[in-house]
Amino acid sequence: MTRDAPRQKICFLLRVDPDRIGDYLEGHETVWPAMLEALRDSGYRNYSIFVDESGLIVGYLETDDFEATLAAMSATEVNAAWGRHIGDMFLPVDDARPVGRVVPLRQAFDLDSALDSVTT
């Protein structure tokens, strides 16, 4: 299996106040159309967010250039408005990650890459 341009796979952790999980989930059931368009236009692909009952959030996205995607998204007015809308729901994940800031996790394994290495 060969892939065209490799995309960066980004996984990150955030934490929402457990008392605000309902608000967080409700907000994500009806994400503003302008926000959805900004995410797409900024380079977010295959973007998913998962939440557990403790408030731990695991996000995943694919993009061609993560730094450029973040910069493009940060430059949008809708991103600032969304941040004001949900920003007070976040808590620190740990001492290494700023509150509400996406810090990618290190990828330890990728099945497609591993399969590519043994089939070529």
Rank of each mutant, 00 (worst) to 15 (best):
H28G: 05
F66Y: 14
D64C: 11
G43Y: 00
R40G: 12
F50Q: 09
W32T: 09
G43S: 10
D23A: 14
L56Q: 06
S54D: 08
L39E: 11
V51Q: 09
D23N: 11
I49A: 11
W32L: 08
G43P: 01
G55L: 02
H28I: 07
D41G: 08
Y24I: 06
A38W: 06
S48D: 13
V58T: 08
D64Q: 14
T63D: 03
G27F: 02
L36A: 14
R45E: 15
L39W: 09
R45Q: 15
G59D: 06
H28W: 10
G55Y: 02
M35C: 06
H28V: 04
M35L: 15
S42F: 01
V31Q: 11
I57H: 04
V51Y: 06
F50I: 05
Y24K: 00
S42G: 08
D23K: 03
G55W: 00
I49Q: 07
G43V: 02
T63S: 05
D41M: 11
F66A: 06
D41A: 14
D23V: 09
E62A: 06
V51M: 05
F50M: 10
Y47K: 01
L25W: 07
Y60A: 01
R40F: 13
G59I: 04
I57V: 15
L56I: 10
H28R: 13
I57N: 03
N46H: 13
E37C: 10
V31E: 11
D41L: 10
L56Y: 01
Y47W: 14
L61M: 10
E53M: 05
T30C: 09
T63W: 00
R40E: 15
E53P: 00
S42N: 05
F50G: 00
V31K: 12
W32D: 15
Y47I: 02
G59M: 05
F50H: 12
S48L: 11
D65A: 13
V31C: 11
V58H: 03
E29F: 10
D64R: 14
T63C: 12
L56S: 03
I49E: 15
Y44I: 03
R45D: 14
